[in-house]
Write a protein that binds this DNA or RNA. Structure first.
Lengths: 185, 185
DNA sequence: AGGTAACCATACCGGTCGGTATACTCGCAG
DNA sequence: CTGCGAGTATACCGACCGGTATGGTTACCT
């Protein structure tokens, strides 16, 4: 289901708030960003933020859902430009390479899990669902082989970590080559 | 060099503070834990904390260094119980599996990077060094093949993410099997 | 005309944040 | 006996935290 991360339509000020929150949460982290700062950056007020979203936690969950939806749409676009076959799985690594070029804080879901994991936060199920969806995508692209799909997914997550936390610039390329070898075997 | 993460000897209260901080930082996250809580948990005072460590940031950096030192010693111990050969690289995954059984918040360095990455925090170089050391270990264990070592390292990092943020219990086993396939080829 | 949803401005709440100040006790080495 | 490093206890600082309260202005719908 591609609608699993859909976000309800928002009022104009709500849209600005979610945009500002998304940028700040990703760049600086969730706990590091206060609601006052979000309201200021969106050119509106805390009152409007709480009228629209109810709580910071709910805003965080919405940020994660919209981010998952957009990232998966981006990846699907990349994959669909490649003719069906095992090359489609490798295209996911090309999408990751392009994304990491500007989004140098890595995977928003891994980062969010580091901050809210194990707390009962409403964003937690969104994080798990995003990982499950990426694994399902890989499995689908290799024709339903769940083991191979899961293993390609590990390379994808590992590349994300190696490039960002590890400061290893060729992580994605390395992952792509390992993936090609697993697809050959 | 195995001494690169060594932590200077500490006074008794300093030791208790670092122990308490390590537990709290790992379980709840760095920003989520205040210095008052750390002092209380260690049965001492904020005064002593600042006398010993100077700042919360310095305490965080020390926590990361000691964690890296202990984790690498743990992995080395696992590896040395296996006769030299490619099986040693697979033993790292066994070490990871055992560690993730109780330490269910995943990689402390990835988590820390999510909170302090890109801020100029004194813990940042420790994080990068830990990732470089794990990659170097894999490379060493496969006889110096830097590409293969880097690719095994990606599977290791990916397994960490898949099990924790992804909630995928068989992530390490899957990574180990993919690693075995890369070692065979 | 009246209702209502959206928005803006501002002030406030109790609590916690990282960090500092003051003043005291203890054990040990010169 | 004296000085000092280590530790305890407590109070304080300005800033910020998530969240609420009050009150007012638009624009659209019936």
């Amino acid at each position: 289901m591609s609608a699993q991360f859909d976000v309800m339509p928002l009022t104009p000020a709500g849209e600005r708030l979610l945009d500002a929150a998304a940028e700040l949460f990703y760049r600086r982290g969730i706990r590091a960003v206060g609601v006052d700062l979000i309201a200021d950056a969106a050119g509106t007020t805390k009152k409007t933020l709480y009228d629209r979203f109810g709580s910071k936690d709910a805003l965080v969950a919405l940020y994660l859902r919209r981010r998952a939806q957009r990232w998966h749409a981006f990846v699907r676009g990349y994959v669909e430009r490649v003719p069906p076959g095992p090359q489609q799985a490798l295209a996911v690594f090309d999408a990751l390479a392009e994304r990491l070029a500007d989004q140098d804080r890595g995977c928003a879901f891994v980062n969010a899990h580091a901050e809210i994991g194990g707390t009962g936060h409403p964003g937690e199920p969104v994080i798990r669902a995003e990982k499950a969806a990426m694994r399902a995508l890989f499995t689908e692209l290799v024709g339903g082989d769940a083991d191979l799909g899961a293993q390609l997914h590990l390379l994808y997550e590992g590349a994300n970590v190696a490039v960002t936390a590890g400061g290893q610039p060729d992580g994605v390329e390395q992952a792509r080559r390992a993936a090609a070898r697993l697809l050959d075997g």
